[in-house]
Design a binder for these strands. Structure first.
Lengths: 117, 117
DNA sequence: TCCATATTTCTATTATCATAGAATAATTTA
DNA sequence: TAAATTATTCTATGATAATAGAAATATGGA
């Protein structure tokens, strides 16, 4: 493996760790869960806040963190900001965990997570 | 949904968030990766430390955290402590994420994570 | 029992994070 | 342009986490 490959891999791990950390608090995991349930449209900030009972400034920080880790996307419609889950990023993270746990080492059996017919 | 169901579900989310947080730092995600690569035997503490270049007291705290979230198991053999990944816990977490992202809302397509033949 | 080795626990320091009220900025509508 | 609404940014506080050297503990062997 080349030096730059190693560096790339190291950055990759750091990125996945940051993504996991971003989802690693109860309020933010709930936000992700809620956004996934409203996928792909997503929800406006105030609706997330009222649904999860989070003050707006606190919520704004959580959304900022999720956005920073590319776990959510945002688009403006008038005065409203619509946040939605970033499916591609989640897929990549899930793929990484899946590979580490199942593919590479067979620690976890794929069929125990999902059964494909 | 009954009140106790709601409470159970709330505790579940908190637990998954804690598990994600436990893996949400670079050193600990590396530890998990390393333990998975050595699954199911695992590794002794000193080998993890030398492989990842982490001082023993720091490593001990990280392992304690992972153990607390039930992501790793430990067994003693003489003076050596063998740490190994807890495949069942990882499977459960992966199953949860999978369900949230793929099964429930179809935000992520299962076949893009794993292709079962 | 005493020593060597493995690992944890103690202790301290520094850094980061979660929370939220108040003020500000952005946008639409009257 | 003024008012109303939406959301962020400012500011502050308290809590938690990461790090690691030094001391203590646990185990096996001489």
């Amino acid at each position: 493996m080349t030096t730059s490959n190693k560096k790339q891999q190291a950055e990759q791990i750091t990125r996945y760790a940051d993504m996991l950390a971003a989802m690693g608090t109860e309020p933010r995991l709930r936000i992700m869960q809620l956004l996934l349930s409203a996928h792909p449209e997503g929800l406006v900030v105030s609706d997330i806040g009222s649904e999860l009972d989070i003050p707006s400034s606190t919520l704004s920080h959580h959304l900022e963190k999720l956005k920073h880790e590319d776990l959510v996307r945002v688009r403006r419609e008038g005065t409203f900001l619509w946040y939605s889950a970033n499916a591609e990023a989640l897929q990549e993270l899930l793929g990484f965990l899946y590979a580490e746990c199942c593919t590479r080492n067979k620690a976890v059996e794929p069929q125990k997570i999902v059964c494909c017919k």
